[in-house]
């Protein structure tokens, strides 16, 4: 089973203070910590586990500048066999369709039985690239997969719905599956492992290598464009407690009691 897994380097914004750049179109990346996108991490683990069970190979591909190589090194340290980075000034500010066009061009000459990626990238939250890629490759897709078994030319998957419900589906391979967090337990990758992987080659491909016309990718080809980013404001009057730790917790305990939380 030859598997391609698409990964993305994203900033960890869960606890970080986010600020918007003066042009209003990007966030300020300085001071943010970047890592592999959460659901992509699970997709890589799933791909490597399938390879360990059934044999074959795993190729990790990312679209990004040279700072994205860290993410590919992490993939190599996880057990991925080959890593490819797609980069070109022409790819900059592609929308989901532009990105999917680049990825489709990148896999055109590769051998694969299965394509995996994460459910969504935590930076732009689009959940689009996986299924759009499938459409461009003439393949079927299943999104939000939280269980996956390969049975010959069929993948038997559980697709997570709302409220704890799951649909069990069978999909003919090759197909594109988007992997949900929690499907497996991603292995621990040691610093040593990543250091060892730093000696492995990462192939780099640009628009010309992929025979991609710049017309179909990048900002100019985007059908959906960001006009402006802004920090949402709350319309709820939240009372943020102030004072010393002692005062704040005293007030909070009083509120909990008043609301029926202490019997």
């Amino acid at each position: 089973m030859d598997i391609i897994v698409f990964v993305k380097r994203v900033p960890d914004t869960s606890e970080a203070d986010i600020n918007i750049s003066p042009d209003g179109l990007h966030i300020i990346e300085k001071d943010l910590v970047f890592d592999i996108n959460e659901s992509d991490k699970y997709a890589v683990e799933e791909a490597v586990q399938i390879k360990e069970k059934l044999g074959g190979s795993v190729t990790a591909i990312t679209l990004g500048t040279d700072s994205s190589e860290d993410v590919l090194r992490r993939c190599l340290a996880t057990g991925v066999d080959q890593a490819i980075r797609l980069t070109d000034e022409a790819f900059r500010d592609s929308d989901a369709c532009g990105t999917a066009r680049v990825l489709a061009a990148a896999v055109k000459d590769l051998k694969y039985d299965l394509i995996l990626t994460g459910v969504q990238a935590n930076d732009d939250l689009q959940s689009q690239v996986g299924p759009v890629l499938a459409e461009y490759l003439g393949l079927l897709h299943v999104t939000v997969v939280n269980k996956l078994e390969i049975d010959g030319k069929i993948a038997r998957v559980h697709r997570e719905l709302e409220g704890g419900v799951e649909d069990v589906l069978e999909v003919r391979l090759p197909a594109v599956l988007t992997i949900q967090t929690g499907i497996n337990e991603p292995r621990y990758v040691s610093i040593m492992g990543i250091r060892k992987a730093s000696r492995l080659e990462i192939k780099v491909r640009n628009a010309a290598d992929l025979s991609l016309s710049p017309d179909g990718v990048g900002q100019k080809a985007s059908q959906v464009k960001i006009e402006k980013l802004f920090i949402p404001v709350s319309n709820k009057a939240t009372e943020i407690l102030t004072g010393s730790l002692d005062e704040m917790t005293q007030k909070l305990a009083g509120i909990i009691k008043e609301k029926g939380g202490i019997s």
């Binding site: 914004t13 986010i18 966030i27 935590n122 930076d123 464009k225 006009e227 920090i231």
Partner: peptide
């Protein structure tokens, strides 16, 4: 048509526009 969409764990909103279609 313009739309407001969420990004970055819901910490940032984006106003997006569309090319003519």
């Amino acid at each position: 048509l313009t739309a407001i969409r969420q990004m970055y764990n819901g910490k940032v909103n984006a106003r997006v526009c569309f090319s003519s279609s």
